[in-house]
Design a protein around this nucleic acid. Structure first.
Ligand code: ZN
Ligand code: ZN
Ligand code: ZN
Ligand code: ZN
Lengths: 159, 159
DNA sequence: CGCGCTTTAGTTATAATATAACATCTTTGA
DNA sequence: TCAAAGATGTTATATTATAACTAAAGCGCG
């Protein structure tokens, strides 16, 4: 089995993500400013989660003005509010959402070797979690499901 | 519906957790030193996750010597290795494991109002996650499932 | 346009969480 | 009793995140 992201045109991922972000923001009246779009682009520079300070470092390379942490965190907060990116709390890092625009609880498969991270929508997981919450009389507002391990690629490589 | 932890003898929880820790460590040859046991006791002071620096502050109150961060983090690392506590990455905090001694992927229900956190073993969740991983050819080594929301108690209180 | 209001970004400082590196003490077992 | 391993102490610093205030940009309205 090979990874979904082993061979693909990643420029396509980026441009699609940016285009969809523009569309969604226009629709909702949110202002996708230059800075915010730039940060989104940097988050999408790979399928690996990226830390706020890594984004800051990239911004320093690519932009005129040298940004400070609050600038980056505010852009990230905006992008999270718009559902364009997710924060992975087990890594203190951020990753682009491949299907923004609809509410969802992603389940993340994080490879500890290559760090490539895949967001999955899995019905059975969502259902079992919902029923677990119901059993306990618990009302979920946010679900963080972060699975760390080895992706299929990296398993093969280790054989 | 009322919370599991609404009315109970919490001294019993603490002493049971400490006793079980002693037994498990003796069995495995791990050294549950005074410091480590003290930190475990502090983690168990409630059913709410506690941060490393809160533990540090408690230690400062209760012990002769004033400990430094590495001291606390090392004790926490030990307790995690022994499976006696879990770290909740969405809170940067730690909580005692109610059923240590056997490998398990806990699922945590974290109340955002009262902060009481319950660890659940849920077969359907474990199964759906295992099948999700299988589908993707992903080999899980660690699963963090942290569900934030309102416990039954706090829902009642808000009505 | 020109003025005020709101939103966004810049700036400075600091909080909160976590670890590196090395020194010292304690336990253990030969 | 002594050497090795393990645990803790100590100092410094890395990493992640936010508070608080200032300045600039965008927007609506007369
Ligand atoms: Zn791609
Ligand atoms: Zn998503
Ligand atoms: Zn209790
Ligand atoms: Zn547990």
């Amino acid at each position: 089995m090979t990874s979904v992201y082993q061979t693909h045109d990643h420029h396509h991922c980026i441009s699609e993500a940016l285009q969809e972000a523009r569309t969604l923001c226009q629709r909702s009246g949110a202002r996708l400013t230059h800075l915010r779009e730039k940060v989104l682009e940097l988050v999408w520079q790979s399928h690996r989660p990226i830390g706020a300070y890594d984004i800051l470092a990239e911004l320093a390379k690519q932009e005129e003005r040298v940004a400070q942490p609050p600038t980056v965190y505010r852009a990230l907060d905006f992008l999270m509010e718009q559902g364009l990116i997710h924060r992975l709390s087990s890594l203190n890092a951020f990753i682009g959402c491949p299907h923004p625009g609809k509410k969802h609880n992603g389940c993340f498969l994080i490879c500890q070797n290559c760090r490539v991270t895949q967001e999955i929508e899995h019905q059975a997981i969502n259902q079992s979690i919902a029923s677990c919450a119901t059993d306990q009389g618990f009302k979920i507002t946010d679900a963080a499901i972060e699975l760390t391990g080895l992706c299929s690629n990296c398993q093969e490589a280790q054989e």
